[in-house]
Simulated scan of single mutants.
Amino acid sequence: MANQVEHELTTELLPLLQKERYVTLATVDFEKKSPNVNAISWVYAPSTKAIRFAIDKRSRIITNIKEEPGVVLTIIANGSTYSVSGKATIAAEKIESVPLKLSLIEVEVEEVRDVMFYGAKIVQNPEYDKTYDADAATKLDRQVMEALKAFES
């Protein structure tokens, strides 16, 4: 997909965004008016045109999106790096079915670009471990992902 612009998630990317995954999110900082990047993992794409994610409702990301809805998600997958840009909205201030105070954000996908530099490929996808109680993490992850899947926009 190098040098190609898509206007929705590809058939290769869609299933990769239908489970918890390491993704970075870039927003415009509401005070500094400069890029702000965060790592997130509760991500779900219900279709090729939308991506949902959950974050702490007190996060600076919320204010950033309210001020400037343009965002970019970066996904490392399939031997490459993808930039997915779009407009974000706060679809739910609080996800009621989850014990933490999380907000649900939905991004309308506008562009998908393969941004890997020429002549290279990713040979290992990012991996991470949860550093808190494994059983609690599994239960919370399941609750959040179910809420992202079930949300009616």
Rank of each mutant, 00 (worst) to 15 (best):
M1N: 11
A2L: 12
A2K: 11
A2I: 06
N3Y: 11
N3Q: 11
E6I: 06
E6V: 06
E8I: 00
E8N: 06
E8H: 06
L9G: 01
L9V: 01
L9H: 05
T10W: 03
T10H: 05
T10Y: 05
T11L: 00
T11E: 02
E12I: 01
E12D: 13
L13Y: 12
L14M: 02
L14Y: 03
L16Q: 15
L16T: 12
Q18C: 01
E20G: 15
V23H: 04
V23R: 02
L25H: 12
L25R: 10
L25E: 11
V28Y: 04
V28M: 15
D29N: 07
F30C: 12
E31H: 08
K32T: 09
K33W: 05
S34A: 15
P35K: 00
P35Y: 01
N36A: 12
N36D: 08
N36G: 06
V37A: 07
V37T: 08
N38P: 08
I40Y: 01
I40F: 02
S41R: 13
S41E: 14
W42E: 05
Y44S: 03
A45S: 00
A45K: 00
S47D: 03
T48Y: 05
A50F: 08
I51M: 06
F53P: 05
D56R: 09
R58G: 13
T63F: 08
I65N: 04
K66W: 13
K66S: 12
K66I: 15
G70N: 11
G70Y: 14
V72L: 11
T74N: 15
I76W: 07
G79M: 10
Y82W: 08
S83G: 13
V84S: 13
V84N: 07
V84L: 13
S85N: 11
G86T: 04
K87Y: 10
A88H: 01
T89V: 03
T89I: 00
A91P: 07
A91G: 07
A92C: 09
E93Q: 14
E93L: 04
I95Y: 10
E96C: 09
S97R: 14
S97K: 15
V98M: 07
P99W: 02
K101S: 10
K101E: 10
L102C: 03
L104I: 02
L104A: 04
I105W: 00
I105K: 01
I105V: 11
E108G: 05
V112Q: 15
V112S: 12
V112E: 15
R113T: 12
V115H: 06
G119L: 03
G119P: 08
A120K: 14
K121H: 13
I122R: 12
V123F: 03
Y128G: 09
Y128D: 09
T131Y: 09
T131V: 14
Y132M: 15
A134H: 14
A136R: 03
T138F: 06
K139S: 04
L140W: 01
R142D: 05
Q143T: 05
Q143P: 09
Q143H: 04
V144L: 06
A147G: 07
A147Q: 08
L148F: 11
K149S: 10
K149P: 04
